[in-house]
Amino acid sequence: MSRRPLLPSSARRGLLRCLLAGVVASAAAVPGRAAPAAGAAAPDCGRPLTLGLHEHGLLYSSQTGEGIDKDIAEEMARRSGCKLTLTVMPRARIWQLVETGALDFSLSAIADPQRERFAEFAWYVSNKYYMLVRKDADLHAVADFRRRDGLKLGVIRSFRYGRSANALVDALDADQRVTYATALEPLYEILRDNRIQAMIVEPFDYPAIHTAQWQALTTILEFDDPAVPHGLVMSRRSLSPAQREAWQGVIRSMRADGTVRRIFEKYFPPELARGMTQFQP
């Protein structure tokens, strides 16, 4: 995928407005961290640090080698002066390696109680989740999906979302109505093949689904959840609290000076980029 600015069609303007409104409306609701204490330590670059990227729409594409996460990683390396070794791997594996301490960082991840046991997060973006559903499924609300026994949902293994989205995924999983994949691409294919009738998407996935083909095939339903912050994942096992605080400082500085916004503006319309990156963590 080329690094071209997003060119929404007229039919997608409504979607963008929806995305923007959702992001802005919930921006203030996200709990955030206190401002860094003055004199926070600098990241320790005494060893090469590892960062796992996962292929996910605008976040990173293995075909182009480009993406938001790669830009964030490069900025982190530049600001800190540390060498970050980037490795592309499935999201599920990233969590395994972060938990064991074999991987120091990952990017654009959300937290949950289980993850917070082994990882610390530094937020830099916040967005809502949406359900991309086939039009022929004849659904008009997310809640209807649960009631229709024959419908299946596609989910990336180990992905978590907002509260109601997670509840839906868990309930459907108990009913064996969830199909898993290690990345997005297979889900798009099986959605197209009607082997699943919906999948959960976020703004990063928009370029893959803005084509006329997808427009004709699908529609987007909004979850009732507020925007969920995404951010830097730091392994508690491999990074000391001081280092984690140092890297918190790096992300904060990137946010503070608008670097994060600018990165996002490379991929999203400015209003959307601003709404996604300007929030109270």
């Binding site: 293994r157 199909t179 898993y180 994949a181 290690t182 990345a183 691409e185």
Partner: peptide
Amino acid sequence: QEYIAFAGHA
């Protein structure tokens, strides 16, 4: 089924 994707291949 579970779909395994790497390097753009599934």
